[in-house]
Amino acid sequence: MQVTINVNGEDRTAEVEARHLLVRFLRDDLGLTGTHWGCDTSNCGTCVVLLDGEPVKSCTVLAVMADGHRVRTVEGLEGADGLDPVQQGFIEQHGLQCGFCTPGMMLTARALLDRNPDPTDQEIREAISGQLCRCTGYLNIVRAVQWAARHPLEASAAPSAGSTS
């Protein structure tokens, strides 16, 4: 079947089998390997991408179901002016170690901040509760999202290197 999915602002058309999963479409057909793939059973959350702006587990969405919809992956986070504040926040606050969970975590953080620019610690923890991190113990991920909240998009076009605020 032919599908056209808007990925990171660009329409991408491909011929896929109905059983083709969105995560495979992104990784194998488009080469966007920033979307990670772990448990395959909708439990770990490393495959999270934004579908029409909301976090979904792309191992449990068929590519054909995303036909005509918008998908945003980690490759689409960086803007013309540089890194997304969420990305910068993960750098500033050491929000990652191995990086396996990081793309999904950052996309969830982006979606959260788009709806709720000033989330509480509890709201951040709730938002990422479907995504496992085996390295950080989550604390620095929460701090990274808080950092991004303090540096909203407009203000953070050029974050100063090494800033620790």
Binding site: E54, V56, K57, V61, T108, S129, G130, Q131
Partner: peptide, 9 residues
């Protein structure tokens, strides 16, 4: 019930 990404679907 489950977690936010699952609840989105």
């Amino acid at each position: 019930i489950a977690d936010p990404p699952v609840r989105n679907r």
